[in-house]
Design a protein around this nucleic acid. Structure first.
Lengths: 140, 140
DNA sequence: TATTGTTATACTCTATAACTATA
DNA sequence: TATAGTTATAGAGTATAACAATA
């Protein structure tokens, strides 16, 4: 009974997925973090504080990340009218296009990684992975 | 038939694992990359070129990574006697201790993330995940 | 006073290009 | 010439601490 075998496998699988993420990001000439930012913005929170929590970053790190993303024209800061300390981050049109395209590519490549597996296994794996992730992550 | 559900779940899982990795690394006052380096050295290649391939890094990035790891006393460069251009990187005693401890912690936390699942499912999943990862990754 | 976000600073990570030394 | 690794450089990511503006 090796209680760590599944965990070890999942860690390795996660590394493989990270590699895919990095490769796809490069195709768009962006960093993995910038792609991640775009994907969060697709259907996640938009405030700096909320996003830094979602991404597990300090607020000051968010500032820099958004600064650089803004310089690249993929997001814009929008001042919040109700609370003038706050701001929302919004995708530009280019940002949204890249977000969707990157998501599609990553998904396709990860799917290719998984390859052909028994449909029953697929369903089991899906439900386990979904169970693990549910409520713990905002990312795409 | 949603062909992207599993892939999306795996991407999210990868992010969660990265978070676990980052948190554990912090406990040891090392970066995720340094912990990864230690884990590769536990049973992977030891030459600079081989390792850079295993980690998906440029040789020059490896140089810096190993420089900093060496400064921290967790690895040492050992000159290769047969080929005097090359060097092996070896774990120090402290490095080996940290590598094992970090691996245990990461594994335990991911295992906790997985939670209780049917033993039959677990076995199936193990073999599926192992199949996906086999031959594609050296990391722990 | 508490919260939102930024600035200043220091380190780390990474890639590209040019290089040294050895094979 | 080809290979193993380093150096130089530039940009990106991150955290901590101190700060400004607003609530």
């Amino acid at each position: 009974m090796d209680d760590t075998k599944l965990a070890t496998g999942l860690v390795r699988l996660a590394h493989l997925v990270s590699r895919v993420y990095a490769e796809v990001s490069r195709e768009f000439e962006l960093t993995p973090q910038q792609i991640q930012l775009l994907c969060v913005l697709l259907d996640g929170p938009t405030g700096m504080t909320e996003m830094s929590r979602a991404l597990g970053l300090e607020k000051s790190s968010m500032t820099g990340l958004v600064d650089r993303a803004e310089r690249r024209g993929i997001v814009v800061r929008v001042r919040d009218q109700r609370d003038r300390r706050a701001c929302d981050v919004a995708l530009t049109e280019q940002g949204r296009t890249i977000a969707h395209a990157a998501h599609r590519k990553v998904t396709a490549q990860v799917e290719a990684l998984v390859g052909a597996i028994d449909p029953g296994d697929r369903e089991r794996l899906e439900s386990v992975v979904t169970g693990i992730v549910r409520g713990r992550d905002v990312l795409t």
